[in-house]
Design a protein around this nucleic acid. Structure first.
Length: 213
DNA sequence: GTAGGGTTACTT
DNA sequence: AAGTAACCCTAC
């Protein structure tokens, strides 16, 4: 697929914003669905300007989620599924409920059945992931504390959690273009990957490009 | 504070 | 066995 070629180029190719947008143009050319609006402005990642909030004009995460909800997550103890890894329908009723109501409440397993010594065992909600993508788009990869402060101030998520989740998201995005997986990604992740894959990969590519300099 | 490898727990 | 996902550990 041309899609995969473009993604490869995206992952290894772009070294500056101009090139990146050229790559993105190619990627967009391969699509005729999904997002109406193309992309965050990426100059947020350009040099030290990343310290400042960047206004996103042509694309806004809030098209997808109520702005007042972003960065406002609360743990709800005792609701745990006590599991990690892919979750099956039979044991994930809570996910369905959460999605129905656009839940901002990650499910914890603290004290729940089957939980071990780990404090948090929450699977990320769709909205949390959206907030993460939004935060990283604005603050930049590696500014985990900043993202935490602004977007997850009341959440149980730590900067390390954000970093780990971003890593998982990037991996999921890359896996998406690889051949069929043995294990499917979880539903919420799948949705995020579908919607934000190009954006996540582009941010990652920019980050990698910067690191090499 | 962050990056990246490791561990644990789960599914196919 | 191999894959995903969340969290832990530790060097820098």
């Amino acid at each position: 697929m041309e899609d995969e070629m473009d993604l490869e180029q995206l992952c290894s190719g772009p070294r500056n914003e101009k090139n990146l947008h050229e790559c993105l143009g190619g990627v967009f050319g391969g699509y005729s669905f999904q997002m109406e609006s193309p992309f965050h402005s990426l100059n947020v990642l350009d040099g030290e300007a990343a310290d400042e909030e960047t206004i996103i004009d042509d694309f806004d995460i809030k098209d997808y989620v109520d702005p007042s909800m972003l960065g406002c997550f609360f743990p709800s103890a005792g609701l745990g599924h006590g599991r990690r890894g892919p979750r099956r329908k039979s044991i994930s009723a809570r996910v369905e409920v959460g999605e129905l109501f656009g839940s901002q409440y990650p499910r914890t397993s603290g004290g729940g059945k089957g939980s071990r010594s780990r404090k948090n065992n929450d699977h990320w909600t769709k909205d949390e992931m959206i907030a993460l993508v939004d935060g990283v788009s604005r603050k930049g990869i590696g500014r985990w504390s900043k993202v935490k402060r602004v977007y997850f101030s009341t959440s149980i998520r730590t900067p390390v959690h954000l970093k780990d989740k971003w890593r998982n998201l990037v991996r999921a995005c890359k896996a998406k273009s690889a051949s069929k997986k043995k294990v499917k990604v979880q539903k919420a992740t799948e949705m995020i990957v579908q919607r934000f894959r190009r954006q996540i990969l582009a941010l990652e590519a920019m980050h990698l490009g910067k690191k090499k300099k």
